[in-house]
Amino acid sequence: MATSTTAPDADQREPRAGSPARGPARRPRGPRRSLLPYLLLAPAVVLELAIHVIPMVVGVWMSLLELTQFHIRNWSTAPFIGLENYRATLDLNSAAGKELLHSFWVTLAYSLLSVGFAWLLGISAAVVLQRPFRGRAILRALFLTPYALPVYAAVITWSFLLQRDTGLVNHVLVDQLGLMNDRPFWLIGDNSFWSLLVVSVWRNWPFAFLCLMAGLQNVPGELYEAAAIDGAGFWRRLRSVTLPMLRPVNLVLLLVLFLWTFNDFNTPFVLFGGSAPEQADLISIHIYRSSFKTWDFGSGSAMSVALLLFLLVVSAAYLLITNRRRDDHA
């Protein structure tokens, strides 16, 4: 590969060209040079293999076993049952299948709403903070704080706010504003879904804000000047300059936020103390609880693999559609 001396790669492969011959020069260097990047990567690759790739393969294998509580201690004795776990858990006529489907719809609604609101708040803050003014740095730091807080500290605080008898929310709504006669429960029943959504938006919107703020820094100021000279008002500039320029950031941001919220475990786990109400039974919590309640890791793995496949298909479709649209415009 390193035949031309003008290619940037070649320069790196002959770093000692100008140095006097010392120890390393006597050894054959060619193979070592090409090995070096692999040696540098080795620790990262080993860790990724051990913690991500191998467990994933093991997970797929587990989903094909009858890995119930009798076989957990010594899983080599678990019988191979093929796709039986998938058939049982994804059978929409069974009770388990219905619960899983319900959990899926709840998670989908939760993710779409959470991502939508997080993006809306993020773009609002990024746009209004684009122009320098007094106090901008303080507001920026304040807006990033929910993202910097450890998730459990943030969510525990919210669960205090949402307590029926001692929480701020009911105090304001019922005692101070008198909007309701009896104190609603926010962490059980139908309200729990909306509580979960608000907490999740509170936690996630700063990430959208951070990315969009970074994206806006790459928009040249002259574009706005030109648009203003052409008589474009605020909304026109937003639609014709800001949003098109943010498109690459948005494409990645929306997908990443969607995957994160769809897989969200922490928020419901801390908010509801491990037992999410049916209305807020996100898929990760659902798999977690059904796996550790019955110790049936086989069907738990089957559900996890199905979840992964679903997310892969969604991501691939998303990337395909957004790429095709870009080609159309080109």
Partner: peptide, 24 residues
């Protein structure tokens, strides 16, 4: 391949790794 694989693991559900890692 390395870059794509590494980044995509970031997107996978944590629950997917939890049960196998626990058993391992």
């Amino acid at each position: 391949v390395f870059s794509v694989t590494v980044l995509s693991t970031q997107m996978f559900p944590g629950i997917l790794f939890l049960l196998p890692l626990f058993l391992i």
